[in-house]
Design a protein around this nucleic acid. Structure first.
Lengths: 341, 341
DNA sequence: TTGAAAGCGCTAACAC
DNA sequence: GTGTTAGCGCTTTCAA
């Protein structure tokens, strides 16, 4: 005797109704169904522990209640936070989540989107590598439900949620200056096209200029995203400009190396050189000294992105709204010294 | 004129063959197909940018090439590492990944499994909350493809991959002793049923005893998983046993609080009290002092778990193999002082 | 209020 | 080597 799969048919049969009726009840389509049958069917479902096959449902209804998330980096804990936000939003709305990782590789990004589409996910939220402009454009042309997070893809017309990075950097620079620092530098990863870092450098530039600094007063250090590259870059910086009295680091992993370099040089933080980092990670407050950082609302970004997507799936079509821009926030600890006022 | 969905039928039609033929070619079933037709069909697929509907395929073939991952905590960066391993393994084998988070809640864990099953995933890899024994048992009774990670569920008969936590703790204690410490304490989270922490405490106990310590020499401090609980517990410990000269912290987040507490007391690390942490996180080597830790192969755990699962899906039935046990490794830095030999 | 029947897009016997 | 056909388990007109 074989185990017999519990399908809608066996429920219908056992309840003595047609599968149409079962289907209606399954979908809360109670309008045309008597309470008596409804209860009987519900009862049978419970007894049989009936689990509707989502594949069959999706095939017919053209909706799977699954969305895809496409990240570009799982190594940075920031993304775990974002993921948590997305996951929570999905669960709250009855969606499931399919996860892909492009690892900043445009080819993998391309493949991931393809896979997600073949799997008929209802939409995708992604942090784009920025290296597949045609792909992004195609998606919005096809009116594919899409929300872009974290990085700006200009003139795309897709829904997006980002954090104001220019603002974040301004907050940082302003704070450094208020703490009496006069020669702040900024450090960022070389990754052409990625707006987050561009914007943070731009924010540094703007804030500096608004305080009377000229172009040649700026100290902008670029580093590859490879082991010790940041450390070397900072060592270099301090050799070339020994009077540098603050480093604004635009990435959370980067900050760790910046501090390492400074300590190696025997410099005291913040007395000799202040350090201001990006992302208020779990470890920031436990560093020595406790790190002053620009906090990004990662969880919120994920949650909002997912909710926007779900909403646009449900309402159909999304009127290419303005980007949602979230505000960063300065978390002041001890790595920049004391504000003078 | 409507956009016309590209199905196997339109490919077949355009190529002038039946959909059977297209299906065969799609699945690399080249045995019974002439090279000529094959090329023509492949060509047409390309031209049409044909994307087979995975729902239809799965409905018919009873395999989706999707597996589920069920985590219990996204906040701890350790799990991002594990996730990365799982993701890589999936990509390499042509699987997609559906992700769920139980957040240590048995009810959510139950729901997640249900969802994954309705979605017809081919199998699940999970870090169990340990609070749903019946659920776990049911799954293996039903011969549902399942791999359990990280935590031991005794006598379950499911495939599993874990790290040797007793060993990890021994490594830690031995090192502390070698560094000349004489009164080491251990700190762990109160979470009944979770074997990881139990095993680490057990490892501490065993190692201590093998060095001639008696039961009353052990200093085992338990803390709730809530803000500052660890800090208070450590403060308490140092008050009660001021001669404690080392703390072995069994969790990466916990370690941060341990250090905070110690510093607050004006104790020097490692001169006064050594600290040895669990999990070699990205930040460990940048702490002050750089942290000596027990490294767990998280990425490997994820990758191996996923590969085991995929293999057992492909081979059908899994002969309830012995658990794969991975070895932890001591990463020596400066937070425990110097070894005496 | 309920049911019959026609698919959704694919796979896999089985025939030719 | 290729095609015919009968479903997979559900939703959804349309009719009763």
């Amino acid at each position: 005797m074989k185990p017999l799969k519990i399908t809608i048919d066996v429920v219908a049969q056992k309840a003595g109704v047609s599968k149409t009726t079962v289907s209606r009840i399954l979908n809360g389509n109670y309008a045309h169904t008597s309470e008596k049958t409804r209860n009987r069917v519900l009862q049978v479902m419970k007894e049989l522990d009936y689990r509707p096959n989502a594949l069959a449902k999706g095939l017919k209804s053209l909706r799977t209640d699954v969305i895809g998330i496409l990240l570009s980096n799982l190594k940075n804990p920031f993304w775990a936070t974002v993921l948590e936000g997305v996951e929570d939003a999905c669960r709250a709305s009855g969606y499931n989540l399919m996860i892909c990782n492009s690892d900043e590789d445009p080819e993998l990004e391309f493949q991931a989107i393809r896979q997600l589409q073949m799997r008929q996910v209802d939409g995708v939220v992604m942090n784009p590598t920025m290296r597949n402009p045609n792909l992004y454009r195609k998606l919005v042309e096809d009116a594919y439900p899409l929300v872009v997070m974290n990085r700006r893809v200009d003139d795309l017309g897709a829904q997006s949620v980002v954090v104001d990075n220019v603002k974040g950097a301004s907050l940082a620079v302003e704070h450094l200056l208020r703490c009496g620092k006069r020669r702040p530098a900024v450090c960022y990863y070389a990754n052409p096209g990625v707006t987050t870092w561009q914007d943070r450098v731009e924010g540094y530039r703007l804030a500096m200029k608004s305080h009377g600094y000229g172009e040649h007063d700026l100290r902008v250090v670029e580093a590859e995203q490879s082991p010790n590259a940041v450390k070397h870059a900072v060592l270099e910086l301090m050799k070339k400009h020994p009077d540098t009295d603050a480093v604004f680091s635009t990435n959370n992993m980067m900050t760790l190396e910046v501090i390492e370099a400074l300590k190696e040089l025997g410099l005291r933080i913040p007395a000799d050189v202040a350090v201001l980092g990006y992302d208020d990670t779990v470890w920031a407050k436990h560093m020595d000294p406790p790190l002053t950082t620009v906090r990004q609302p990662g969880y919120e970004m994920g949650k909002i992105a997912a909710n926007l997507l779900i909403q646009s799936i449900r309402d159909g079509g999304h009127p290419a709204a303005d980007p949602v821009v979230l505000q960063p926030e300065l978390v002041i600890r001890r790595s920049c010294g004391w504000q003078s006022s």
